[in-house]
């Protein structure tokens, strides 16, 4: 992925935040389109379709969550929410609305760039239509979807079908936070979205099989109160 010329739509009403983001992102050769409210963002999104949206939640003419829903109705463009609302409920709300990621203010440039990278890569994979033949490699973890084979440090790990699906889902979204609801809905279906404790039990089992020290995980990370994330250093 080459960020040069990648068009970012920035929706943020705070001037200092815009200045910081413009400076930091332009320095990395991103093309930044600045808007300060939802009305402008709506126009911009259709006039100059961006490759990624950085969205503040508390905007003068409306809520970013509603805008997320609006965009998701017709586009899969990655949306990263940047918000001062740090509560877990707010994160879940934004992610369930269709945001790809959520960064709580304050955050560092490196963290933002890492999240942008993950979001762009994931979007790219979606567009390319990832084939089932591709072997997924995340650090020492290798997943071969064709053979339904999971290897950790080249050792085959035996997983139950559900465990495999859970791991595959997280691995495919490596670097992104998936909410409990999203995971439960994908793996078990829409009727099981309240079974958070069951998901936790399966995650614990999965950690025992994959993590060298399940009490100090390196891959399967908990985002407390929000969901899970497969760590992705790449």
């Amino acid at each position: 992925m080459n960020p040069i010329g990648t068009r970012i739509l920035l929706v943020e009403d705070e001037t200092p935040m815009r200045r910081f983001l413009r400076t930091a992102l332009s320095a990395r050769e991103f093309e930044v389109i600045e808007t300060t409210n939802i009305r402008e963002a709506r126009l911009s999104v259709t006039a100059h379709p961006p490759e990624i949206i950085l969205l503040d939640l508390g905007l003068p003419d409306g809520d970013g969550i509603a805008f997320t829903h609006e965009v998701r109705a017709w586009s899969q463009v990655p949306i990263i929410v940047l918000s001062a609302r740090g509560r877990e409920e707010d994160k879940v709300l934004a992610l369930d609305a269709g945001a790809d990621d959520y960064l709580t203010k304050p955050f560092g440039v490196n963290e933002l760039l890492a999240r942008i990278r993950v979001a762009l890569r994931h979007a790219g994979q979606l567009q390319a239509g990832m084939s089932h033949e591709t072997v997924l490699k995340i650090g020492p973890l290798h997943l071969n979807p064709e053979r339904r084979e999971v290897r950790m440090h080249d050792q085959i790990v035996a997983l139950t079908p559900i465990e495999y699906r859970l791991l595959w889902h997280l691995a495919r979204n490596a670097g992104r936070v998936l909410t409990h609801q999203q995971i439960l809905k994908t793996i078990w279906g829409p009727h099981y979205t309240h079974q958070t404790h069951t998901l936790r039990v399966f995650m614990a089992q999965l950690r025992r099989k994959i993590e060298p020290d399940p009490a100090h995980p390196q891959l399967l990370m908990t985002e407390m109160g929000v969901g899970y994330r497969m760590r992705d250093d790449g």
């Binding site: 404790h197 936790r200 039990v201 399940p214 100090h216 995980p217 908990t222």
Partner: peptide, 16 residues
Amino acid sequence: NLEWIPFEELIGSTLV
């Protein structure tokens, strides 16, 4: 928001 959670998960995320 009371929920059942494996203690190991709490420890793990704390250490992380």
